[in-house]
Amino acid sequence: MNAGWLCGAELNGKKFSAMEIVQLLIYGIVLGSIITLGAIGLSLIYGIIRFANFAHGDMMMAGAYIALFFVVTVGLPMFVAFPLAMAGGALLAVTIDQLLYRRLRRTSPVILLISSFGVALVLRSLIQLIWGPSIHVYEQGIKLPIRFWGLGIKPDQLYILGGSVALVAALHLFLKYTRIGKAMRALSDNSALAQASGIDTERVIIWTWVIGASLTAAAGIFLAIDTQLHPVMGWRLLLPLFAAAILGGIGKPYGAIAGGMAIGIAQEMSTLVITPAYKPAVAFALMVIILLVRPAGLLGGGTK
């Protein structure tokens, strides 16, 4: 591999081929699409219920484990288990909302935030109680990447990418054309006016959890396919999720797409110059920078 057009880059005395960079870009896009799906849910919920859901990463993890139940315990193929796990994630979120958050909604957002922290701990402990603290996978065995032009792409990564694009497109159509989707955007814009228009805010909030949590469960399953299942898999991704949502302007689901991609690609590309263990620090650094420079997010016009 030393074709003339493949000019390399040199950093810290290490030499990288353009191929290596493209390979990392591909990994970044895959990670970015997982973060995007999770960040959309986070952003939707922030935009409509106005609280930072610290249980979001663990909702992701719970979705992955619900799929594990359907795939390994029940023995269903993944393409059947996937929508079932999305529905399971949505049901879980609506249940938590109705039992807990609904009663706290009239209090301050800080109380909701702290209670979501508690939800995160409960979810993680429950999963650990059922499946134990060790690693699980949906399918045993090693899958070899497909090689073309010297780049390695695993079939799973193509499914993740294709699935994410399809889900984001479906979300777009939902928000743009359905009555509930439009009501969700209206509520996020101006909740008092939405109520004055006759929109039943409690119903829209339930729908927001259904949509946000099913995308989150999908993100969790994709993450588990790309890596493996572990009780802290979602908690570890919480920081990148928030970074992506804030980067895109929290409360704006379309911004979360740009934010998620930016964080995913930045995290993977950072391994060119720093050790991979510092990947989460990259998300944190980007979040701090964006809060200092553009607090309303990249796509944020102005503050409300």
């Binding site: 439009k182 955007r185 209206a186 996020s188 814009d189 101006n190 008092a192 006016l193 939405a194 004055a196």
Partner: peptide, 11 residues
């Protein structure tokens, strides 16, 4: 019709 914030700006 409220006096302020009486439209959905992003819609």
């Amino acid at each position: 019709v409220p006096q302020e914030h009486n439209v959905f700006p992003s819609l």
